[in-house]
């Protein structure tokens, strides 16, 4: 009960912050040089001034900025995020269709980061100074130092262009037909029993997922190694070993649970990397998610889309932080929310 109240307090506490952010975005996006009406009409010079004025009026851009802001905030209360100038769709619908793609990609990245980073970190810690350890730590340095856009292009070049093992862009083979249910393609293909689509969706996730997860993978491996090294030197491990617990069992059953806590902390802190990094990865892999949407909208001066996307990003951030705090409290009962 007390926990529920605390969670509610945290959520409500985030509202002023989100509101400030929405207003800042609203103002900043209008400070970007370039008129959306000009961009919409293109460079062709054969548009009359009356037509320009009519379009401006129909988009609501002829009013003073405070009137536009008031209208936007009123709409927000009713759950209306406005319309995209460019795609002629409600922003809310655009966000709902792109969010699953982004979340699916972030989950794939998280999976790769943990599935590779944790075992590598453990193996390095068990044999510190070994060839494997040194190789793993050198590789992790590379992972932190590599720009995601370039790593993505190189993975694409190797596995899609040269070896032809994996698809390069998009979420699904366009020749396949998949009935949308949730927007999460892996889930949808499972729900509808569409196995070719499942295969295609999974294979499309590999390269962008790896690219997005690369940095986190390196960080997880390093943190896992150092916390595991520390855990293995504790008295309870020596005691377990003295009692006759075999090597790997001592590592996995006794040391691992304790060594995982710092890793969870770091993964939580780095969730922002997954969310913030997706703009680049989605652009490189033509992934139809939130990141690609917002980059395109900034270039197109599609005000309403930028506003909506920033709000969604920020809300996701607040939520992710909250989830991490709850997970901490669960893993370490000494802490409270």
């Amino acid at each position: 009960m007390r926990t529920a109240v605390r969670i509610l307090q945290r959520v409500l506490g985030a509202v002023p912050l989100l509101l400030a952010l929405v207003i800042a975005t609203f103002v900043f996006v209008r400070m970007i040089p370039g008129d959306p009406v000009d961009i919409l009409l293109g460079q062709g010079g054969n548009v009359s001034a009356a037509e320009v004025a009519a379009l401006r009026q129909s988009l609501g851009l002829d009013e003073p900025i405070q009137v536009q802001l008031a209208r936007f905030l009123r709409g927000l209360l009713e759950g209306d995020l406005g319309h995209s100038f460019w795609q002629r769709q409600p922003v809310a619908r655009l966000l709902v269709t792109t969010l699953p793609a982004t979340v699916e990609l972030a989950l794939a990245a998280l999976f790769f980061a943990l599935a590779i980073g944790i075992p590598v970190g453990i193996l390095s810690a068990v044999r510190p100074g070994s060839l494997l350890d040194r190789l793993a730590m050198a590789t992790s340095f590379l992972g932190i130092s590599m720009p995601a856009f370039w790593a993505g292009l190189m993975l694409m070049f190797l596995f899609a262009v040269k070896l032809r093992w994996l698809p390069s862009v998009g979420r699904l083979d366009p020749a396949l037909d998949l009935r949308p249910v949730t927007g999460f393609l892996v889930l949808d293909s499972l729900l509808t029993g569409n196995w070719p689509a499942l295969r295609s969706a999974l294979s499309h996730l590999v390269l962008p997922g790896l690219t997005l997860g690369l940095e986190l993978m390196a960080i997880v491996a390093r943190v896992m190694r150092s916390s595991m090294l520390e855990a293995l030197q504790q008295d309870y491990i020596r005691f377990a070993r003295a009692k006759g617990v075999s090597g790997w069992s001592a590592v996995l059953r006794h040391a691992l649970p304790n060594a995982l806590v710092p890793t969870v902390t770091v993964v939580g802190l780095q969730m922002g990397v997954l969310l913030g990094g997706n703009m680049v990865v989605e652009t490189v892999f033509a992934w139809p998610g939130l990141g690609r949407l917002v980059v395109g909208a900034i270039f197109a001066r599609d005000y309403a889309v930028v506003q909506g996307a920033v709000l969604l990003y920020a809300a996701t951030f607040v939520l992710a932080n909250l989830l991490v705090d709850i997970l901490y409290a669960y893993l370490n009962p000494k802490l409270s929310l």
Partner: peptide
């Protein structure tokens, strides 16, 4: 406030 926001989106803006 600044920490809780994707760096890239910020600089892009």
């Amino acid at each position: 406030l600044l920490m809780g926001f994707p760096y890239l989106l910020f600089t892009l803006f």
